[in-house]
Every structure is written in C-alpha cells, then in structure tokens.
Simulated assay, not measured.
Amino acid sequence: MWQLLINYNNNGGQQVDLIHIEGDQVVLPGFIDCHTHIAFAGSRANDFALRNAGSSYLEIAAAGGGIWSTVSHTRDCDARELVGLTIGRAHLLLKQGITTIEVKSGYGLDVEQELKLLRVIRESDRQIQPDLIPTCLAAHMLPRDFNGSAKDYLHMLAEVLFPALKSERLSNRIDAFIEKAAFQGEDIVAYLQRAKNMGFDLTIHADQFTTSGSQIAVELGAISADHLEASTAFEIELIAQSDTVAVALPAASIGLGCGFTPARKLLDAGACLAIGSDWNPGSAPMGQLLTSATILAAAEKLTNAELLAALTYRAAKALNLSDRGILVKGMRADFSLFNTDNYQDITYYQGSLQPTAVWKNGMEVLSI
C-alpha cells in the first residue's frame, strides 16, 4: 500500500485528501489526446471499404465521400444531438485514461456552422469530466458550396469568424490543413499570420501527403505541426531546431494504409514528439490512443519513456498547457490507476490493459 496526497480546489476553497492505494497499482498522469475531430455526425465506413478496394482519395471524394460527406452530415445534425455524440466519444476516451482532449471544428465550413460546432464543443466540455480544448479548423478544405476562391474563403473567415471566436471566447487556437487538396501558399500564410496577430495560438495539419506545411508552421511559430508522415530530412531538422512540437498521428497511417510519421528520426534530431489519436470519421475512426501509439512505438522503435512522455507532458506542450502531464507538486491532479505491478505492462498490452480508476482535478471520475 502507498499513499498519494492531493490538493485541489473544491467550490472555491482548498481541500487536501490523502488517498490510500492498495495492491499492485501503477499510477500514471492522465493521458492527453492533443489532436481529435470527435465533434461530427455520420460515418465514412463506405470510404474505408472503397479505399481498401483500391479507390483513390480523389475518386472517393468525387463519388460523394471524403470530408465533404462528413460536413454534410454534421451540418444536418442539430446542436443537441452533436453534443450527445461528442460527449459519448469523450467518455470513451476517458475510459482509456485520457483526461484532456483537444477537439477540432472543421466539419461546418461556413461561419455559422463553425460557430455551431465550437459552441457544441463548449457545451460538451461543461457536461463531461475531461477538459475539452477547442480548436478552430475552419480552414479544413474549400467548401463546395462557397462561391469564390480559396483566398476569398480564408479572407472571409479572418474578417468574420475570428472576431466572433474572440467575442464568444469559443477558441484560442487556429488550425489549417496545408496540402495540395486543401490550402497552401501565400493565401494560407496570410490567414495564419492574421490569426497570430490577433493572439490565437497556431497548430498546423502539416506534411501529411506532401511537404511545405511544417516549414510554414516553424516560420510562423506554431505550437505544433501534426501528421508529418511525408516529412523528409529537411523538415525533420527544421522542426528539431524549433520550439514547434511534432505530433504523430499513427491511427491515420493505419486507417489510410500509409507510412508512419518518422518519429525515431524526429527524436534523434532533437524534436519534441507528442502522439494524438486523430479520431475522425475518415482516416482514423478507431479512437484508440494507446493502441495506435504502441503500434507506432513498435514500428519506430520508441522507448517506453519516449512513448509515455508523448502521451502526457509533451502532449500538454502541444496544447500550450503547462499545468498537467506530470505528477509533481503544483500540477493538476489528473491521473489513472492501472492494475499491474509493472508499468511496462501498460504499453506491452497495447491498449488492452485499461485503467481501473481515473481522477480529474483531484476527484475520482471513473472507477471500473
């Protein structure tokens, strides 16, 4: 038996509890999922089947699938139902020991629908124990029903959506998908620079299929560059020499059947590596952070220390959060208990060993 002393706020006051942990238990900081898209409606199971049968991304999109399929379903879904869907997925992540969850918009793709999604994320956060960290991904793709160019769309977002985000305090994070099929060049740089000038933190979908996104992320001082499957030695060195966190999303590689983020090379070069689930209905529907992370670890030869760091305090850094991710005095009391006498079992069983209890802000929020 051992003891854990926690100090937390309780209705505005301070309370100290001494928790007795009996039996063979490993206590880990609450995992932090620093990249998800769990606020959505609909399914893309048909896309997955077509992709496995040999159809290309563009062919699937032309047949009515892809991101636009999810946008259509999400737009048609009312806010109350979206809150229920988002809470349900967040609860499944909580059961995995995840106590902080980044959640992106990006399936609205116009001002009102993006605001609807971000309000859904805020309302879901009020009703679920994990912290939901909202990110605006209105620059996910050029919507098919927008009458104008990519430059026009991004200018409209900056002029209309950004001030609304500030006035309603819906998000302090702006994301963009930098890719040939999405946004690139001077247009996206101007959009992101405008966001930075307004005080938003930046994060970038970068180097998933082609390079250039990570260079923009580093040049603009983005908090993180996420994906990086296509990154070469040039991009790896660039990221490693910056303060931008490299976020690997192995579930997307599994879902798309493509190569993993070069995590070993990034770490060896000196980069800060975090790992997210990328839970989304298209490329990463599994929603299993630890399972996908341990598969990446096996493929890229990551140590247990590197893997667990990527799911805790380095993931916190990817969200610009300095108050969680490690169990030390003064940090949030977010942690999970695993029924084992060997912490290595947690990665060894590749996600099948689930927490027996989860604590958030010093309160037990889940017990199995």
Rank of each mutant, 00 (worst) to 15 (best):
Q3G: 09
N11F: 06
Q15V: 11
Q15G: 07
V16F: 14
D17K: 14
L18G: 06
H35A: 00
S43R: 09
R44M: 08
A45T: 15
A61M: 12
W68H: 15
V71G: 00
V71P: 01
R75S: 09
C77D: 08
E81L: 13
V83H: 03
G84P: 02
L94P: 03
G97I: 10
D110L: 06
Q113E: 12
L115P: 04
E123Q: 10
D125Q: 05
I128T: 08
P134Q: 06
T135G: 02
A139L: 10
M141Q: 05
L142N: 07
D145P: 05
F146L: 12
F146G: 09
A150E: 09
K151P: 09
D152P: 08
D152C: 14
L154A: 06
E159L: 11
E159I: 10
L161G: 03
L161R: 02
R169Y: 05
S171H: 02
R173Y: 00
A176Y: 02
F183G: 06
F183Q: 06
G185P: 07
I188C: 05
I188V: 15
A190N: 15
L192W: 05
L192G: 03
D201H: 02
T203L: 01
H205T: 03
S212W: 00
S212L: 07
G213L: 00
V218H: 01
L220R: 01
I223Q: 00
H227G: 00
A230K: 00
I236K: 02
V247Q: 02
S253N: 08
C258H: 15
T261V: 08
P262G: 04
K265P: 07
L266W: 00
D268A: 06
Q288I: 06
L290I: 12
A305D: 13
D323C: 08
R324W: 09
R324E: 08
R324H: 11
R324S: 14
I326W: 09
I346Q: 10
S352N: 14
T356Q: 14
T356C: 13
